[in-house]
Simulated assay, not measured.
Amino acid sequence: MIRSSMLAAVLMLAAGGPALAQDDSPYVDFQMLKPEVALEMAQAALEHCRAEGFQVGVAVVDRMGVPQIFLRDRFAGAHVHETAMRKAWTAASFRTDTVTLDQNTRPETVSGGIRHISQALPLGGGVPVESAEGSIVAAIGISGAPTPEADDACARAGIEAIADLIAF
């Protein structure tokens, strides 16, 4: 009886071995959006903004903040490239939407120093894109709508357009 219990314990440890060995791996596994899906999201955000009467720029970065897609509507201002990219980068880098980051990094707050990072732009319109498991797979940034809240709504419309694809 004792021998059976010991054998069962050894087998359980052995079964857990590969999982423990995997934790010691020098590699990290992660997911990112395919460029085709990032493009579909960007196009949906651009169309949503157009329907609202806004001419915008839409940027999508991968989970590391590296640019994947940029779309600019024909009458969007020259500034939209930089601001959309920075909003997307900020959302990916800080793993939060830029509306929330704006509120949490006001100059009088402890985190106000974030505003001095050259690439960071805590201004509404940047939203991280999460998989069904909650892992960030990209971020989208919008610039050119009349308010940060309108930029944010366009970004969220883009994410909603691909929700079925990323709900794995």
Results as ranks from 00 to 15, higher is better:
10 V>S: 12
11 L>F: 04
12 M>T: 13
14 A>D: 03
18 P>Q: 15
25 S>D: 00
26 P>N: 08
26 P>Y: 01
27 Y>S: 05
34 K>D: 12
34 K>R: 06
39 L>N: 14
42 A>L: 05
57 G>S: 11
61 V>D: 07
66 V>R: 13
71 L>P: 02
71 L>Q: 14
71 L>T: 15
72 R>A: 06
76 A>N: 12
76 A>Q: 03
77 G>A: 09
77 G>L: 05
79 H>Q: 14
79 H>S: 13
80 V>C: 12
81 H>N: 09
87 K>S: 14
88 A>R: 14
89 W>P: 13
90 T>S: 15
96 T>P: 12
97 D>A: 11
97 D>F: 08
98 T>A: 12
102 D>A: 10
105 T>P: 04
108 E>I: 05
110 V>L: 09
111 S>W: 10
112 G>E: 00
112 G>S: 03
113 G>W: 15
116 H>C: 02
119 Q>R: 14
120 A>I: 14
121 L>K: 06
123 L>T: 07
126 G>W: 05
129 V>A: 01
129 V>D: 04
130 E>R: 12
132 A>M: 04
137 V>F: 05
139 A>E: 00
144 G>W: 03
150 A>L: 00
153 A>E: 06
157 A>R: 03
158 G>R: 01
160 E>R: 09
164 D>A: 07
164 D>L: 03
166 I>G: 02
166 I>S: 01
